[in-house]
């Protein structure tokens, strides 16, 4: 199943995913978002086995709700990253087949934060971008060439959108439009990209 990606900018992060759901070459759905929100400015992208994407996204909704009740505050992206890591490692010998991506802004520091994981919770902290899913190679190529430091929110949107659309157009297993979230301090913008419908 196709892919989410996230990139970092100046006081902003972006996270995006395509909308295809498929079983190998068979397209099952063309409206299957893979990005989930766990607080005002914390987002999780999930690729991999669709059943595990749903199970894992629900599991974290449950865990983050309990966190909010116990702590009486929203979870920070850093804490979310550690929660994802430990939860995945609990299933070290029977893992969920997912490759998560976390993106958000830390409320206390105001700093943007992104990271990625393998299926058993090893964290990949990145200062630039994280990619995951079937078009990871293509995304590495486009991000490496298009990304630059300190992108403002609007430029960040253009960069992540061009990177994602160009990448999924060279992957038969991804595409059918995309969701893009631009996360700034106290502001989240969600956009739907139509993209190629083939």
């Amino acid at each position: 199943m196709a892919n989410p990606m996230s990139i970092i900018g100046k006081n902003a992060v972006a996270i995006a995913c395509d909308l295809r759901l498929g079983l190998q070459a068979l397209t099952v759905s063309n409206d299957f978002p893979k990005i989930f929100q766990y607080g005002p400015d914390v987002f999780l992208g999930l690729t991999g086995l669709a059943t595990d994407v749903q199970t894992v996204s629900d599991l974290f909704r449950y865990k983050v709700n309990l966190y909010r009740l116990r702590e009486e505050r929203d979870i920070s992206p850093q804490t979310m990253a550690n929660l994802v890591s430990t939860s995945l490692y609990e299933k070290r010998f029977g893992p969920f087949f997912v490759n998560p991506v976390v993106a958000g802004i830390n409320r206390t520091t105001g700093e943007p934060f992104i990271c990625g994981f393998d299926s058993i919770g090893c964290i990949d902290f990145a200062k630039d971008f994280i990619v995951s899913g079937t078009s990871a190679d293509q995304l590495f190529g486009t991000c490496e060439a298009l990304w630059q430091p300190d992108l403002e929110a609007e430029d960040l949107f253009e960069t992540i959108s061009q990177a994602l659309l160009s990448a999924v157009d060279r992957d038969a297993l991804a595409g059918w439009g995309a969701h893009v979230y631009i996360v700034e301090k106290d502001k989240v913008t969600k956009r739907l990209l139509k993209g190629r419908q083939d």
Partner: peptide
């Protein structure tokens, strides 16, 4: 080896795909 990384970038910047 890196065709999969480079080709989408070329689509975007030479043939102006998605622009």
């Amino acid at each position: 080896a890196a065709a999969s990384l480079i080709m989408p970038f070329l689509d975007n910047q030479v043939n102006l795909k998605n622009q």
